[in-house]
Design a protein around this nucleic acid. Sequence first.
DNA 1: CATACGTGGAC
DNA 2: TGTCCAAGTAT
Length: 353
Amino acid sequence: MAEQGLSPRRDGKIHRLLAWYDRHRRDLPWRARPGETPDPYHVWLSEIMLQQTTVATVGTYYRKFLELWPTVETLAAAPREDVLKAWAGLGYYARARNLHACAKVVAEELGGRFPDSEEGLRALPGIGPYTAGAIAAIAFDRPAAAVDGNVERVMTRLYAIETPLPDAKPEIRSRTLALVPERRAGDFAQALMDLGATICTPKRLNCMICPWTEDCAGRKSGIADGLPRKKEKAERPRRKGIAFWVERQDGRVLLRERPDKGLLGGMMEIPSTEWAASVARPEVQAPLDAKWTRTGKRIEHTFTHFHLELDIWSTRVLADTDVPDKSARWVHKSELDSEALPSVMRKIVDQMR
DNA sequence: CATACGTGGAC
DNA sequence: TGTCCAAGTAT
């Protein structure tokens, strides 16, 4: 719960931020206009998509999802496969699996209504501390803190917090909570994020036009642009593999569904060897016995935690060739676009088709 | 708590 | 070309 606004200094800060927001708020597809009542479904859908994903990228997907599934009930009723297809290319596919699971819970167990408390929201799949706070504040105007990367940047600068992330998280959270106003909590949350996205940016910050420029301890001490500090990340190892492009005489290619958990879980793939530091005995790992051609083609792809290099081998098989196992399907080359293929797999398709 | 989990754009 | 990063969550 937010503290009461007893300090004039605090009230002034909140007022300056909200006044700035009223003039400079971004007009975003999922954002209710002033005076409109936010739709919790819209808020939820956008917040899930925006996790670690840019506003520019989300726009297209958000509109597509709303067109396909205008309500949480329609989304819940959709086959999961369709949801994964629509999500393909957005990344972090656990989000899509959880999105569908969450829609089912809300539609089938909660009467189609999202919980209006952080605690209730937090219990749903795919909703963590940030998203619970964001939905509570934005959709229900509850005085909750929504601490995302923007807010972490703004707060570490505003209070000159030099502790590196993630150790600084508790302090950032309590600092944010102490500022959340009783009224207009949703606008406050969005204002903080807009401030971080447009003024208090990672580089080339624009303190000159910041509503908090006089309040900012980081600016006063000249360390703002170096905040937040972050612990060093582990380096990305390089992995290799071989992708097997199997084309049947009728123009269909072999696709395989990935296991439900882990990397690209539940998505479709071009069959490949394991992805490891080195590739051992590729023929043994091929989806079927065939005479393989080393195409000389190669794709490279960088995941969050490793870099991948896939050489492409190909073969042609007879039109009556059956699928090697139950997770595999033949899909015509002209229909690959509508499959749930993640970007790394699209790179292979683009090379071969 | 550290790690797994995608992608595309900016510099 | 390589690195960083963008409205984080689950385990």
